[in-house]
């Protein structure tokens, strides 16, 4: 167990190195941020000066080595665009995205599981057909369009919910959180729904198909024969088996939720790190882009580790195959 975690950490470091190199070169290839940020009438001298100030006048490999060297001691540098420390910039935006992603994740599980179970248990019923049709609709709608429609309906026409931004925040554990206020939730609910759209549908479909299969397996039939209550059969025996693919996919979905938050945050002008990434790409703010990616990768390594551990707990046959 401890060995597994340790090995994963070592792998994480190499992954971070590869990724930082790829993204560093990638952003370098896109273009020179100073040319983009310079005002129209900037003279060559001004541009050269700015490049020197930002260290962009040196060969790219030197720039990268400096970056890695600093990163090793926990210094991710400062943003080209605002000259603020990158870590500050990201940490400031992080709570917003954590809230958004978690809310979307919760919606996915809380809506997806029960609906999926119902659809899987009574596949021929009208309810199940409605749910499955709804799930198809769910991932057929382009999320940005769905988000815009919600704004149209709930904010513009009905005036129930604020259309954009993040609500009132409260300081907690050294960060600003919006989930402690009603205003915060009223800002959060639409972006979270938009973000969860695809994941809810995915969970419904996975659970429904899994349930259908599970209810036909011998062990469920056997459990029934043993006279166990239907509820016990469904929740304990069938569901446990269904959860294996669901947990894998949900784990992966956290990643796509994070990526999806880029579009959601753009539509709702929601100040999270997804929006930060888009802004940074548009301004070629390399330190922020690379640090963001490193952060996400580390996050992924952790999520995957957790998924694998839960996997092991759920399916004893996989035990001992973790690497």
């Amino acid at each position: 167990m401890f060995e597994v975690v340790l090995r994963r950490l070592v792998q994480a470091v190499s992954v971070v190195l590869v990724l930082s190199l790829v993204s560093f070169i990638g952003v370098y290839k896109i273009g020179d941020p100073v040319q983009l940020l310079a005002h129209e009438g900037a003279t060559e001298q001004e541009i050269e000066d700015a490049r020197a100030r930002l260290g962009l006048d040196r060969p790219v490999h030197q720039q990268y080595l400096t970056f890695v060297g600093r990163m090793a001691v926990g210094d991710f540098g400062t943003s080209f665009v605002s000259s603020r420390p990158v870590v500050d910039v990201i940490v400031e935006r992080l709570p917003a995205t954590i809230e958004l992603t978690l809310a979307a994740f919760l919606i996915s599980v809380l809506m997806g599981l029960p609906l999926g179970i119902v659809a899987g248990l009574y596949p021929e019923g009208p309810l199940a057909r409605t749910i499955m049709a709804g799930s198809i609709l769910g991932f057929s709608l382009p999320a940005f369009w769905f988000g815009m429609m919600m704004i149209m309906f709930f904010s513009v026409d009905l005036g129930w919910l604020p259309s954009i931004g993040r609500g009132e925040t409260t300081r907690f554990l050294g960060a600003d959180w919006a989930v402690f206020s009603l205003d915060g939730w009223s800002h959060l609910i639409m972006p979270a729904l938009m973000l969860s759209l695809t994941t809810v549908s995915l969970v419904i479909r996975l659970v429904a198909s899994g349930m259908r299969e599970a209810m036909m397996t011998d062990y469920v039939k056997f459990a029934r024969l043993k006279g166990l209550s239907e509820r016990r059969v469904v929740l304990l025996h069938a569901l446990k088996n269904v959860m294996i693919p669901v947990v894998t996919v949900l784990g992966l979905e956290i990643g796509s939720l994070l990526a999806g938050s880029i579009v959601t945050e753009t539509v709702f002008a929601y100040p999270g790190i997804g929006k930060l990434l888009i802004d940074s790409i548009n301004r070629l703010d390399r330190p922020v882009i690379v640090t963001y990616l490193i952060l996400i990768v580390l996050f992924f390594v952790v999520i995957n580790l957790i998924v694998d551990l839960i996997y092991t707990a759920l399916d004893p046959r996989v035990r001992g195959t973790l690497r």
């Binding site: 792998q11 190499s14 992954v15 590869v18 990724l19 790829v22 993204s23 990638g26 952003v27 290839k29 896109i30 273009g31 992966l252 990643g255 796509s256 994070l258 990526a259 880029i262 990434l277 888009i278 790409i281 882009i289 990616l293 996400i296 990768v297 996050f299 992924f300 390594v301 995957n304």
Partner: peptide
């Protein structure tokens, strides 16, 4: 392979597309 998959999945599609576009 799995670490590659992780790198890829942590790489936002948009950024990937932008880089391809740039090149």
């Amino acid at each position: 392979v799995m670490r590659l998959a992780e790198i890829q999945m942590s790489f936002p599609a948009i950024l990937l597309a932008l880089m391809l576009l740039a090149v």
